[in-house]
Amino acid sequence: MRLNPWEQRWQHWLDQRLPAKNQRTLAQRSIFIIPSGSGLALLVVLGLLMILGINFQNSLVYVVCFWLLALFILNILYTYRNLAGVTIKALRIEPCFAGSHAVLELELSRMPTRAHWNIVLDWSKQDHVLVELASCQSVRIQLSHLATKRGYFEPPRIKISTTYPTGLALAWSYFTPDLKGLVYPEPLQQDSALAHQGNTDNSGKILTAGGSDFNELRAYKTGDPIQRIHWAKYAQTGQLYTKSFVDYASEALWLDWNQVPTPRTEQRLSVLCAQVLELNATQAVFGLKIPGKTIEPASGEVHYEQCLKALALYGLPYE
């Protein structure tokens, strides 16, 4: 998205004025207010009334005109007050997979003496929610945002706005949470070359394609790693055979970067991610080997998250 210089300047100014923070109580410094579209339309109506009043020299038409003007001005204060004093707090962002939605959890709270109505939290073009803070002291809301890339999702500005009570003025503020949400690679099921799914052996053990225990010799399929071709058999028969190996679940399985049959990094990560999901679902013990990082075989939630995080942050300039 390209911004023109003025917009850039405005964005920069906003960043300076409203830096990322996990909690902010909206007040004078942080609230902007302008007449809304219908507010401007009302001003046009006022102009019309003024002309009517002047031309008919009618005092009561003047009264209506000035009354609406006073109401318009008063309404600005009302709208401002509906936003001022609201405390917004970013709680957490749940990790998600690339291509799905990162969900930010926020808490809005108020001072006990003041009620707030019809506040809109808006992630432009992503998600919005309308809340009231009158019947309760605080409210938790979730906003979702599409996470397109793996790594850390840094939530953009959230616009908090209100036009309460009459819709004639628009008061708004921005809130940028100082949180990062992990975005795991998009899982990619690869059922072609390497059978990643677990097969069931005769002995009843769960087998997963792996590299440690020799299982059988089968006909070569495109995509098989070149190291596993049974050259002796080739010499004998002139046919390509592949040695296939399995990991018995009783022992640790390794998910290895090098064994993913695709040269593209992102795809590899996606495939590995799908495998991690798969294995975690079967509660298998597995380890992960990616360049620069090796996670020893284990199982359980913590391990699972650790693996996914490693995949998410692979090659990225974090920590």
Binding site: I54, N55, F56, Q57, Y62, V63, F66, W67, L69, A70, L71, I73, L74, N75, Y78, P165, T166
Partner: peptide
């Protein structure tokens, strides 16, 4: 709101210049 707007309205009413038609 309508009642609160009265004082401001009155001030504008008394002070706003009256123009000929």
């Amino acid at each position: 709101m309508v009642l609160q707007a009265i004082p401001l309205m009155l001030i504008i009413f008394f002070l706003a210049p009256r123009l000929p038609p």
